[in-house]
Write a protein that binds this DNA or RNA. Structure first.
Lengths: 243, 243
DNA sequence: CGAGCGTTTGAAATCGGTCAACAGCAGTGG
DNA sequence: CCACTGCTGTTGACCGATTTCAAACGCTCG
């Protein structure tokens, strides 16, 4: 089913400091190396897992990005998250031993495979790792709550502003530019994330451009007035998350 | 700040089987008794915690119900969840040692206090308890994802149908009637949960009543045609969560 | 009984959705 | 190299669901 598998190592991975080994000693990180033995490449559009698949592994992203989504029978889809390198996928599978969403590559990417049962055992031995997993889960909850606020209480402009700030901050954390980056997702996917139609997304991008807030050329985005975006998105709520 | 504190015991609590001790042996449950030493009463409208308060404890609901919400500067509010007896509150505090939402009593209620640092230590000793906490966190994520789908992809009627089914299923799990119950929240709170205005909520309740789907008399709800509610809410997605 | 709040209902306004045409660009194949 | 095709994104005109504004209703509690 999946194209290729190779050995992986946390202790030498460049993404390591944003990823699972965060906060571990060198010896502890080496213990993870044993678990994280395989990685896996996906081409754009390929599935990492489907809703209902048996939950066996967590995945951490080495490079590229993915989306997770829920589907309705009639074709409507809700994108739950856009996922960047260093982030962990599959956490929603722990609750009922079945993945609860679809995970799809937004572009060519590579993920590490972490068998959960082994990882759980290791967590028993390394308290700081256990704590890290709790925090990972809890932060995902917090992110989802922000997303809920966005979908339930913001208007279309505010929603777009939220997304751009959210992406910007996460990229900054990884040492990348917070003001100029590529959108791996298309307009429709932006809409499915924010509960908007593609035409609305497009119109608001045009409006932001004309207002001098951003510059968009197809997938490339440059933020010119980030303050205005913060103002629109309800600034007090986009701040408090640290990592 | 909080009205009253009394001794609590999991091993004798009637709500126990839906709560933290779920799946533990008698000896293990007695170990929890030591942790869960205090409980606390709240009157309707009182806060259990505020966004930004230091995270010290998880809370489990003995009776009554609460809401958690996020607020925007301009007064808009997004309700994140309605919480019933046996459910755990405060999980969003683990990630950054600060509660990330407001928790408010919807009616008079009582909660048990579980100091998280002690609970975490106990989890190290009892693997099944550790697993339970992971599952708790993961299921909250799954619930939030459903809620996201609801806010982002459903129309007003479908949203209401989703809420009623969601409440109905959770009450059924507790051995209560799945077709007739009281809504602890007001119309405005329903709206803040679903991303709708109070008038829209009211109109759709009237419409459902006229269509013979429900019977509402102020806070009392009777579901007459649950199949139709399932159909509206996108049935395939309200099923798979087990507990 | 009257005050006050929460809820319901109606009419008008608005935001975002729908439908439709078109533009831009990548890939394909002559 | 350049038409042809198909896909994605943009723009405009119109439509409709939900919001807004306003008024009335009906509890509950002093």
């Amino acid at each position: 089913m999946h194209p290729l598998q190779q050995a992986a190592k946390c202790s030498t991975c460049v993404i390591g400091k944003f990823c699972l080994p965060l906060g571990l000693t060198i010896e502890e990180a080496e213990q993870i190396d044993i678990l994280v033995s395989q990685k896996l490449r996906l081409n754009k559009g390929e599935y990492l897992y489907h809703q209902g698949d048996p939950f066996i592994s967590l995945y951490s992203i080495r490079f590229g990005s993915l989306k997770t989504e829920l589907l309705l029978q009639d074709g409507r889809s809700q994108i739950i998250g856009f996922h960047l390198p260093g982030e962990i996928l599959g956490l929603d599978g722990i609750g009922n031993n079945v993945y609860q969403s679809e995970a799809i590559a937004l572009e060519d990417c590579e993920v590490c495979i972490v068998q959960f049962s082994e990882f759980e055992t290791l967590c028993q031995k390394i308290p700081s790792l256990q704590r890290h997993l709790y925090q990972l889960l809890s932060r995902e909850i917090t992110q989802d709550h922000r997303h809920l606020l966005t979908l339930g209480s913001l208007n279309a402009e505010e929603k777009l502003a939220y997304l751009f700030i959210y992406l910007s901050e996460r990229l900054a954390k990884r040492g990348l530019s917070s003001t100029e980056f590529n959108l791996a997702m298309g307009r429709e996917e932006i809409g499915d994330y924010l509960g908007l139609k593609i035409e609305t997304v497009s119109r608001i991008l045009s409006k932001f451009s004309q207002a001098g807030i951003i510059e968009v050329k197809s997938k490339h985005l440059k933020i010119l007035n980030i303050k205005e975006l913060y103002r629109l998105a309800g600034s007090e709520l986009t701040q408090p998350i640290r990592q």
